[in-house]
Structures are given as C-alpha cells and as structure tokens.
C-alpha cells in the first residue's frame, strides 16, 4: 500500500464574503498523477493557491493534511520546505532579483530545514546547470532577473526548472500548458516526466486534454462550482475533450 501524500477533507475557502471552494475532498497517494479539470471560474486556481498558502483566501472549514501534517496554519515557505511546490499559471516577474540569487536563497532555505549546509557557489552553479538542461533552458537565463523579459514558454520552463531544483514531494502545476506552443509544451511535459519518482506525486490543473497526452494522469477529477463533481480514470479527460462539461453538470 503506498502512502497518502495529500488528504483534503471538506475544504471550504472564501475570498471576502464569497465562498469559492464549497467542500473539496481529495486524496493523492505517492506516485500518483492526478488531473483536475473544469470550466473557467470553477475554483481550480483557488484550490492551488489555498494549497500553497496564499493568504488572500480564507479557509473557513475542512482540513488539509500533507505528508501526515496539518498544513492549514503553515506559511507558504513552511509548506515549500515540507515539499509542496506550486507551478504558477502566471509566473511573477521580479526585476532586480536574479534567477541565481533567487534559487540560491530558496535552495539554501530548503537545505537549512533539512539540516544541511548551504551549497557553495561552485556546487550551486553546477547543480543549476544540470537542472536547467532538464528543461533545455539557456544558462544565460541564470543571471537575468526572475522571469523578466521571458516569453510565456520560458517562464513555464523556469517553473519546471525551479521544481527540479527543489525536488518537491508534491507538485501542483496550475495550467502549466496555458500559453505554450507545441514545442514548449513537449519540453515542459518531458521535464515533468523526467522529474517523476515513485515516491512523488503530481496534480496537473488544466483546461485541455492536450497536456495530458504528455503527462498521463492516473485519476481525473472534474471541479465545478467549488466541488469535485466527478472522478474517473484517464479516459475521462478524452470524454471531456469530446463532449465538454455539460453532460457532467446536471
């Protein structure tokens, strides 16, 4: 029996007076790939933000257990060092902070949490080069400001590169396919697959079947109006692609 990595029970979350998540139950085991699909405004991005700890959303009831720990009270940085990773739909540009500086600071926080010494500059750069190759990223990007002047595809590659550096137990990829052409999609998806290990899990949030041709899910959920209304195997994604969501929304 593989271990449960994420267990969500009766999760409700609001922004201001508006309830967006209205009772989510979800269980992800080690090694599994889950896809969450759903029409616009169903709460997909809210769910990923809530899991990553964004404080614009208030969890009003329910529980989130990650790796056996209740994470609702944890800061985003605590969740990160515990092994949770969110790939952003719209990665943020941070002018003036170089990719190197950003990732070195992040990686050293992770190492500190694990009781490891910080990497020295040479070790760090070597690791960074190795991980950049996974997503075919040009090494010159390391000295540039985080995501500044990056194309849509380059930003998404940078997300997967960061994931490669931090080696999370659970990666949540929020519409990683949006804004990507076929080549970029292939590179990003291949990167995700290369990083997959038997003890890590992935949640892919997407609108389209397209990405799921590359990152094949074990389980597909349909999120609608703040609830998971349907769960099935990977064939569900194809069905949604052909028939839309209407037949599921009664």
């Amino acid at each position: 029996m593989s271990n449960t990595i994420l267990k969500i029970r009766g999760l409700h979350a609001s922004v201001g007076d508006k309830e967006i998540l209205k009772g989510i139950d979800l269980e992800v085991k080690e090694g599994e790939v889950h896809a969450i699909m759903g029409p616009n405004g169903s709460g997909k991005s809210t769910l990923s933000s809530v899991l990553a700890g964004r404080d614009t959303f208030e969890v009003t009831s329910g529980s989130i257990e990650f790796n056996g720990k209740d994470i609702i009270g944890m800061t985003p940085e605590q969740r990160s060092v515990e092994g949770l990773f969110l790939g952003f739909q719209y990665p943020i540009e941070i002018p003036g902070v170089t990719n190197v500086n950003f990732m070195r600071t992040a990686l050293n926080e992770h190492r500190k949490y694990k009781g490891l010494e910080p990497l020295n500059a040479a070790e760090f750069l070597k690791l960074m080069r190795q991980k950049m190759e996974i997503v075919e990223m040009n090494p010159s990007f390391s000295s540039r400001g985080v995501n500044v002047g990056f194309s849509g595809g380059e930003k998404k590659r940078n997300e997967i590169f960061q994931m490669a550096m931090l080696e999370p137990k659970l990666a949540i990829l929020d519409e990683t396919d949006s804004g990507l052409d076929v080549d970029a999609l292939r590179i990003v998806a291949t990167g995700v697959n290369k990083l997959k290990r038997p003890d890590t899990s992935t949640i892919v949030i997407t609108h389209y079947q397209r990405l799921l041709d590359y990152i094949v899910p074990d389980i597909v959920h349909i999120l609608y109006n703040g609830r998971i209304i349907h769960t099935a195997g990977k064939e569900l994604a194809l069905e949604v692609e052909q028939k839309g969501y209407d037949w599921l929304i009664k």
């Binding site: 700890g53 800061t75 940085e77 952003f88 941070i94 003036g96 950003f102 600071t105 931090l166």
Partner: peptide, 21 residues
C-alpha cells in the same frame, strides 16, 4: 508570495525586493 512559495521566508523575500529596488 511567489518567493515564499519557493521556501524563502517573508523577511528574506522582502529584503530581496528592497535590494532589487
């Protein structure tokens, strides 16, 4: 939030932003 989601503490994240400024 982006920096914190990568494990950087709030204090370090705001310092990085100030240095960038």
């Amino acid at each position: 939030f982006y920096m914190r989601s990568r494990g950087i503490s709030l204090k370090e994240a705001s310092l990085l932003q100030q240095m960038a400024f």
